[in-house]
Write a protein that binds this DNA or RNA. Structure first.
Ligand SMILES: [Zn+2]
Ligand SMILES: [Zn+2]
Ligand SMILES: [Zn+2]
Ligand SMILES: [Zn+2]
Lengths: 178, 178
DNA sequence: GTTGACTTGTTATCATGTAACATGAAATGG
DNA sequence: CCATTTCATGTTACATGATAACAAGTCAAC
């Protein structure tokens, strides 16, 4: 059980294809996206001492196939079809492991999971969820989080974890709808 | 089906017992809390044309008994014990109605519902959830929401609804724990 | 090579949420 | 006042999401 709290929201304006302003919504080289995430994930796990087993790797790969959140049972179906176990705990354990180690996120609003797109460092982003195409983007949420913590502090409440999930329209769908 | 979006986060520094800075966490005259919420709820419904039926009223009263979020089945048990229907849709319909009309909120993180404490005007607050005592407070979230919308706008994403839920320790529990 | 920690798989069960349909109350309109 | 229509309430049955508890296999360390 990993107990580290998400703390870092550094806005790393890296220069590779997938991590610019609108990673998920803009067209991009998604193969690179996947590859980099897997790579960073491996590094992250090495630091933390977690073991990247077949089920876990495959689960992460499945999540990485699209910029969408997937339900646990959807993941399970995929795993089962590929020869892994057929029972819910198989999926939930793999998913929980990925979340605990910062390689995936849980979307509270959707009861679903999504791969983290830059697991290289600990972070707790806000999520933008397109209600039309279901795509999902992470947004560095440090400013937002700080604003909330300050507000809460005025009431004496000590914020530990924050869930920020926004529903709306991605650029593509907004244009299509208009 | 009500389609109005939550738009107002006015910080009304009213002078009655229950609506100060820490309505839920601080000791207060909770009878007044309930009474005022029910009263405002009635007014709100009148404006919107909704009907406050027995199940709906009772559901709201049950939610108002405490500053906690309740699961739909917990509410259902109470309703059933009082002679209302025994099946899930009974609770879900009443709860959905209350949420759609701004008289209750849904807590995504908890899969649970809570009465709105000041349903007098349309609002979409942030929530502070104490992990020790389960109590819950609403926080005017306009600044936070604005910060997020601005961030999102940079990526071309049009935010429509935002879920902000913070987990942490309320003043009382923080003191007790220390 | 045996111990001990961890991983994977199972069965069974619980929790949460909806679809679809039948009945009943209430507003609407002649 | 009654007919029409709309909305509310109740039901059964099912879908989806999540976990507890146990058995067996894997792997590193000593
Ligand atoms: Zn990508
Ligand atoms: Zn979209
Ligand atoms: Zn109160
Ligand atoms: Zn508390």
């Amino acid at each position: 059980m990993i107990t580290s709290q998400p703390t870092c929201d550094k806005v790393t304006l890296v220069t590779d294809d997938c991590d610019r302003t609108t990673p998920a919504f803009a067209p991009h080289d998604h193969r690179a996206c996947e590859a980099r995430a897997l790579d960073e994930a491996a590094g992250r796990l090495a630091e933390q001492g977690g073991r990247m087993t077949p089920v876990r790797r495959r689960t992460l790969e499945i999540l990485l196939e699209s910029h969408r959140a997937m339900g646990a049972y959807e993941v399970l179906d995929r795993l089962a079809a590929e020869g892994f176990g057929h029972q819910p705990p198989v999926a939930y354990r793999a998913l929980d492991f990925l979340v605990e180690h910062g390689l995936a996120h849980r979307l509270q609003r959707l009861n679903a999971f999504a791969a983290c797109l830059h697991p290289g460092h600990d972070h707790a982003p806000a999520f933008l969820i397109c209600r039309a195409c279901d795509k999902l983007a992470e947004l560095p949420a440090a400013p937002v989080r700080t604003a909330l913590s300050n507000l809460a502090a005025e009431t004496g409440f000590a914020v530990e974890r924050v869930t920020i999930e926004a529903l709306g329209l991605c650029p593509a769908c907004a244009e299509a709808g208009a």
